[in-house]
Structures are given as structure tokens and as C-alpha cells.
């Protein structure tokens, strides 16, 4: 069962309550998102109120309670990217993948999210796919770039 993996993660952190954020991050790496049953299981195992675990999971933007695709696309719409046409990049990706931001493609290959400033404004407009940062984008560069991801 998938709870075996969670037990392993909990053991790695010595079942410490104070490590909750790190634990949730590891779980998210494992499943790509935080499933509802898993949050309940973690709360029970660590002896923390479920409402507190949920509070934490909804507070931080990194955590997702919805299922995410194999690749996560973060489109930057911070000030610099916004001025240099980040919205047009977002529209192009939305058209290509046929989804709106905050949702997941039908083949669960990509999920698309909007973020504020990834911290490299000189590369604006910029998007991040998983850990790769793609800067100085134009609408024409989007389609061939998305094809590279499996």
C-alpha cells in the first residue's frame, strides 16, 4: 500500500512534529500532490490535529491538494514578466494544452499554474517546467518546447 512509503518518510524524520513541513514536502515529491487520506494518516501518526495539518497544507503555495500532472508548468506573471508579455505566453500555453491555469491536462502530462516572480526578472518573460527555467520566451518558442517533455 502507499502508506508504506509514508511510514518510511515519517521514520526518516524520526516522527518529529516540528518537521511537518519537510515531511509534507517529501510526500508531495512522492505523489506529486497531497492526497486527502495521506494528510489524515500523517496527522494521526504524528499526533497533530488534522485541522492543523490542513491549515499548513493550504497556507503554503508549494503544496497542492489537487492532483498534479507529470510536469508542472509555472508561468511567471510578476511585474517584469507581466510587462514583457507573460500574459501572452500564458494564453499560448493555455491554447496549446487546451486547459486553464490551475488545472491539469486530460492525459495528466502537464499541470499549469501561475506564480508571482521566480526571481530572474532579467530573463522575462519566464516560465519554469519542473526544475528547468526557460527565459526570454516568445509565443513561437512554446510549442516546440512543450514537445520535448514526455
Amino acid at each position: 500500500m502507499k502508506f508504506n512509503k509514508i511510514d518510511k518518510i515519517l521514520e526518516k524524520f524520526n516522527m518529529q512534529k516540528s518537521q511537518l513541513i519537510s515531511i509534507l514536502q517529501d510526500i508531495q515529491n512522492e505523489f506529486n500532490f497531497l492526497p486527502m487520506e495521506v494528510l489524515g494518516y500523517v496527522a494521526e501518526k504524528l499526533g497533530i490535529p488534522f485541522s492543523l495539518v490542513y491549515h499548513l497544507a493550504t497556507f503554503y503555495k508549494t503544496f497542492s491538494l489537487k492532483r498534479r500532472g507529470r510536469h508542472l508548468i509555472n508561468v511567471c506573471l510578476g511585474t517584469a514578466c507581466h510587462i514583457r508579455g507573460g500574459v501572452r505566453i500564458l494564453e499560448k500555453i493555455e491554447r496549446d494544452l487546451n486547459i486553464k491555469s490551475g488545472s491539469i491536462t486530460l492525459d495528466s502530462k502537464f499541470s499549469l499554474e501561475v506564480v508571482r516572480c521566480v526571481g530572474c526578472c532579467s530573463l522575462a518573460p519566464v516560465i519554469r517546467i519542473d526544475d528547468d527555467t526557460h527565459g526570454r520566451l516568445t509565443q513561437g518558442k512554446i510549442t516546440p518546447m512543450l514537445k520535448k517533455y514526455e
Binding site: 489524515g40 490542513y54 497556507f59
Partner: peptide, 19 residues
């Protein structure tokens, strides 16, 4: 009871049960 807690943050912050 530990049934209710804060959720989300900023203008979306609210108090409810998980999910």
C-alpha cells in the same frame, strides 16, 4: 475537539473543518 482550523491565507483565509 481539534475539529476546526484556519485555512488558506490572505483574503482567502477562513475557518472551517478540513476539506
Amino acid at each position: 475537539g481539534k475539529a476546526i482550523g484556519f485555512q488558506n491565507r490572505g483574503y482567502k483565509r477562513k475557518i472551517s473543518t478540513p476539506f
